[in-house]
Design a protein around this nucleic acid. Structure first.
Lengths: 347, 347
DNA sequence: GTTAGCACTCATTTAATTTGAGTGCTAATA
DNA sequence: TATTAGCACTCAAATTAAATGAGTGCTAAC
């Protein structure tokens, strides 16, 4: 069967109506709501077809229809195609440049949640970095020296190392020199076991300090460890009856508490963006129900967007709500923040 | 009216019964449950008295009684008095020393929540620190220098400062010297405006760099900013019907999401501990219903405990559940972790 | 191809009834 | 005087029954 123009119109009307009301929509309602003039009976026939084609579902024999995941998918795809719709009821979202990056991200999450009335999350930007840029040991007090490590992307890592007393300024200077001559500018792959053994040898009795420093360097270069996730508005899900029963709410809340469950989503989203190439959509992805990589989101829709912060620092933000979320509004909100973040650090 | 022995026994029986079942308890049930032999009628008379005295409440005319906040308070107080009860059904809680403090705290929160089936939170330890211990500027690349600041308690703060090109190694050395001679070992109060102006004067054209450094120092010394709060098991509240309706759950979840609302609780708890002195209770505090400083916890009980991590680093942990929580178990869990944390960093 | 008409379905709402745990009071009992 | 048995009464909660109404599929007429 073919999805002709009339069927398309009816399907869209069903979805739009359901997005607003949250109730199954029937033929009589549609007959009034549609711009083309058709009797309820005709519409019923069309609806029957649409159901057979899998776009809509009848919760029980004598109720109206609601969109299936396939139906939402159709709607979202066609909606995304024609850009720039009017979006109502959004406050001006203005990101204020915060001192700390974490403050900024918290702010963004809150803006997204407050403006859309859905739950929101944002990941810290993942920095492409695997070159050591700066390394320095300094004495802090008698027993402790501090290793400061800076890697590409100006990520700073500190490590306090305790030494058993006897290390004079001269030795410290030598160790600094040793480390810098051998390690500076190297990538993680280039710091291999041979090199490490060499440095340790040269360090003589202080090889244990070197070992700790090298550990810290490895830590600083490894990316995944400091993926931070900020969330906001998880309690918004209580506004949507279809998500607010104990069972579902508990699962969703639990995911928002153990934020690491979003890890998959973030990497998948960044990956798709990288390969996707469809620059029109600006890395906006929609996961409807079971399409989502997160099990507990099977009754939700998840809309993600990537953002860029300065040089090659990419992160991901996302809005999570019921399947009948206002996709236009959400996409618009994400795009707005995308742009703001984009420009924010580009002066 | 006096709370004689028999009344006490009945009151305790009511509360214990209610803690288990969550249902209002009536005279017939009590008559079976009590060890002293009394007819339901007698018990009814006593219950009537207890109600008049404010220890129990009748949700409606023909229902059993449930404890009032005053009743819980009585129970908790007398429970806390006789120590060392058998606590059933607790797994061995073992804290594994983690590399990062934040990992440790997350682990503790999870342990508490998983073992008690209530929600749990823990604050990062608040360090007494207001002396500057170490300060150093280093060049990271052409345009950027990095300020590393260490304050008492080995809290490290980094600040990247961009300079417009012309600063040679010599100047950097001078600035380092200037800052160290003037600031080292000083407390926040001693770094006053006069001193700041003096240093800026001496720094000449680089006074703007100095300004940024001093800002960063102020940040590092100010404690409140990096109060971190880790939570776990917020979704456990769904296990208790009296908290699981949308309205209440939403409020509680929202508090757990905006963790900063716990700030009051933490400072109040640490304060009470400091002045309290009652070393027997080891800083365990119980807030029942409205006693809690947090509005949204009015239908919950909040049990807090302070912990000490090494030298003078005090933090607070807390368990939040329904008023009919298993106080014994909770207190025991908190005490167990208190001890473990205590010894963990004391070697 | 479209629509009016009709019998049928079924979740939801409303009302009526039943059940049962619990109470307070009074009078008898120990 | 303290305790208890007995009884009428209350009321939330569960159960049942009936009514409502939005919606459907099918058929025959337009």
């Amino acid at each position: 069967m073919e999805l002709n123009e009339r069927k398309t119109k009816i399907l869209e009307a069903i979805i739009r109506n359901y997005l607003e009301s949250g109730d199954p929509v029937g033929s009589r309602t549609l007959s009034k709501y549609l711009d083309i003039k058709l009797s309820p009976a005709t519409i019923r026939n069309e609806m029957s077809d649409l159901e057979e084609m899998g776009y809509i579902i009848q919760p029980h024999t004598s109720s109206g229809r609601i969109p299936s995941d396939k139906g939402y998918r159709f709607y979202v795809d066609s909606m995304m195609a024609d850009r720039e719709k009017e979006v109502s009821d959004m406050h001006e979202m203005v990101v204020e440049k915060a001192g700390e990056l974490s403050e900024l991200l918290k702010q963004v999450a809150k803006l997204l949640a407050d403006n859309t009335n859905y739950a929101a999350l944002i990941s810290s930007p993942q920095i492409h970095r695997n070159k050591l840029k700066f390394l320095q040991l300094s004495r802090v007090d008698e027993g402790n020296i501090l290793a400061v490590i800076v890697v590409e992307g100006n990520i700073i890592k500190n490590k306090m190392i305790s030494v058993n007393g006897e290390m004079d300024d001269d030795t410290l200077l030598k160790l600094n020199l040793l480390l810098n001559t051998h390690l500076n500018g190297l990538s993680l792959e280039e710091i291999n076991l041979g090199l490490i053994t060499l440095i340790k040898e040269r360090a003589g009795i202080h090889s244990d300090v070197i070992a700790e420093v090298i550990d810290a360097v490895a830590d600083a270069v490894r990316a995944d460890e400091d993926l931070e996730i900020y969330t906001s508005g998880a309690n918004n899900i209580f506004k949507y009856p279809e998500l607010a029963d104990n069972q579902k709410a508990s699962e969703i809340i639990s995911t928002f508490e153990e934020k690491n469950q979003f890890g998959h989503l973030i990497s998948e989203s960044l990956e798709k963006e990288r390969e996707g190439g469809d620059s029109e959509k600006k890395g906006i992805q929609v996961y409807i129900g079971n399409e989502s990589p997160i099990e507990s989101m099977k009754d939700c829709s998840v809309v993600t967007a990537t953002y860029e912060l300065g040089d090659n620092m990419k992160g991901m933000m996302s809005i999570i709500g019921p399947k009948r979320m206002d996709y236009e509004k959400v996409a618009h909100a994400l795009k707005t923040l995308q742009e703001q973040l984009d420009t924010l650090y580009k002066k």
